[in-house]
């Protein structure tokens, strides 16, 4: 009994502390993702297999000052850890059923971050669009194992290419099919 109380006294503040920091970091992460989305609003993201509004290699060679011309694969991966509060909520949810919001947020974070990094990577290579975005859940370790920690890991990949500027995209441009930011 005494041991349990001591354990609680020791672990309690640690967990509360961790949870508070975790929450802050999470909302900060979401804010950063939001800013990233706004800053890259003109970056063309689709998950179409064709290359919408692509600038052909010939046209690119004849004039347009673009860095890279030949489309290339970009890949990113993100692993987000769960925390004890999330696990606690999840086990509670498991009892009553329904959406496990804390985990939804966690997986959302991983996926959005992965797509944001795809955009960064493509930009760094000198491209202004990505198409055929695929976001997959990656598996690390055995989650079915008892006591295994929940985590959200994902692997995203897309093809980076050059497309015409937003103004040249015509009517469809306004609809910017964006897979990433619709939550």
């Amino acid at each position: 009994m005494q041991f349990l109380v001591a354990l609680l006294l020791f672990l309690g503040p640690l967990i509360v502390f961790g949870v508070l920091i975790g929450r802050t970091l999470e909302s900060r992460h979401f804010r950063r993702l939001e800013q990233h989305a706004q800053a890259n609003a003109d970056f063309f993201v689709t998950q179409l297999k064709s290359f919408p509004y692509a600038i052909s290699a010939d046209a690119a060679k004849s004039g347009a000052p673009i860095g890279a011309v030949t489309p290339t694969l970009v890949c990113t991966e993100v692993v987000i850890a769960s925390d004890y509060l999330k696990n606690f909520f999840a086990s509670w949810r498991n009892f009553f059923g329904g959406e496990v919001r804390s985990y939804s947020r966690m997986t959302d974070r991983a996926k959005r971050e992965a797509v944001a990094r795809l955009i960064d990577q493509a930009k760094a290579l000198g491209f202004n669009a990505i198409c055929n975005v695929r976001v997959e859940t990656a598996e690390i370790g055995d989650r079915r194992k008892k006591g295994a920690q929940a985590m959200a890991s994902c692997l995203a990949y897309a093809t980076a290419y050059h497309c015409v500027e937003a103004s040249g995209r015509g009517a469809m441009g306004g609809l910017t099919p964006d897979v990433a930011w619709n939550g």
């Binding site: 970091l25 992460h29 993100v78 850890a81 925390d83």
Partner: peptide
């Protein structure tokens, strides 16, 4: 280290690296 990360949550850089290397 990943186990400790469970206190606050957040990105597990080690595992992200693992995936990058594998890929």
């Amino acid at each position: 280290a990943a186990g400790f990360k469970n206190l606050v949550g957040g990105e597990l850089k080690g595992y992200t690296e693992l995936l990058t290397e594998s890929r």
